[in-house]
Design a binder for these strands. Structure first.
Lengths: 209, 209
DNA sequence: GTCTATATCTCGATAGAC
DNA sequence: GTCTATCGAGATATAGAC
């Protein structure tokens, strides 16, 4: 189930509709009928194309999982100084998340309900040796050895960076309610967020006497 | 629906069972039957006590919402230096989250499905003037003015601190899969996490020339 | 207050005509 | 490939005996 999988026009619409439904209501909460409606297709055709709800979910999740980590990978590649890595990563990943919010929601939903689908997908990353999280961790470890940054735990640091970028999109409804300014100028807030995170992490990781 | 609400013994059991079910499978995915079973009660009694699934969910969410922010509040109070605030908050809040993982899951689930229940609850915090997130933000703003820390955006900083503490618990299944060491010694990992976050943030916020 | 039995509805899935 | 009609499982909710 790689990225090379191709779909017909109808299947594409189903896919997008299913992603949106599963992301908002989870695997159990989503309804085949609403997916069919959103895809402008008959409900019977949904089963004709994807056999069952489980199979549809599995296909959508596999797609989302690859996307989620591809977004990370694209941001780590090709950067010289570690500060440039940090800058590129934070900017690139927040932009990616902004454009793929359903991807985040589905990933989180899957984790909340146990994450059984995650298990199989993780092995995909390992075997391909293209795990972008590991790439980020390795890059951090490298920078601690060269003295480019303070001696920090690479795994913890990577987790902190990811947390700080992703969490906002998860709790956006609460954020919006507590600080209406966030909703009034969402893009502006996200630009501020990038700057804040780069500033905080560069200072937090900078070597000291 | 304040904390002063009292419940009978049976209602307490229902409450705990419902929290667990809603947290793992969401409002739609959770089943009244499984809640009844877990509460060691007849399914009809569930409706006798709480009328409907919607009302049960509303009651559980209100309880969880208060708990979630009370956990933040308890950690901000009574600390002298800002570094002490940071230390107390991170230690206290991670410990709180560790002991109330279903609270996190339910909060996130609600946000993923639109967060309609959040709207009413936020007004509760505002009117009571006991919004602990605002307290944290105020404390950060204060520290920037006295020069105790660098001039940073208080809202962004508070969001970063919360993100870094909470996110791990949301994506734990994925973490465990990518780094089995996390599952082998969970408590140890969380102690490391506290130390890492305190270290990173203290350095990141420390005033510089 | 407690439980059994059941009404009512909704969902996933399929049969079968076209 | 496409659609209508429907089956059967399982869900919420309630009626009514005790």
């Amino acid at each position: 189930m790689t990225d090379t999988t191709t779909y017909t026009e109808a299947e594409e619409r189903i896919f997008e509709a299913a992603l949106q439904a599963f992301a908002r209501k989870g695997k159990d909460g989503a309804r085949m009928q609403e997916i069919a409606d959103a895809a402008q297709i008959n409900k019977a055709m949904l089963h004709y194309y994807f056999r069952s709800k489980d199979k549809l979910y599995a296909a959508v999740f596999a797609y989302v999982f690859q996307r989620f980590f591809a977004g990370i990978g694209a941001a780590v590649e090709e950067a010289e100084s570690f500060e440039a890595v940090l800058r590129t990563f934070i900017t690139g990943y927040i932009d990616f998340l902004k454009d793929h919010q359903d991807v985040v929601r589905l990933m989180v939903n899957e984790n909340l309900s146990g994450g059984e689908a995650v298990v199989q997908q993780v092995s995909t990353l390992k075997s391909a040796d293209g795990n972008p999280v590991r790439a980020l961790i390795t890059r951090i470890a490298q920078a601690t050895k060269t003295g480019e940054i303070r001696p920090v735990d690479p795994f913890q640091t990577a987790l902190t960076v990811l947390s700080s970028c992703i969490f906002f999109f998860i709790v956006y409804p609460t954020m919006r309610e507590m600080n209406p300014g966030v909703a009034r100028d969402r893009d502006g807030f996200l630009e501020e967020r990038k700057a804040h995170l780069i500033d905080l992490l560069v200072h937090g990781l900078h070597p000291r006497s």
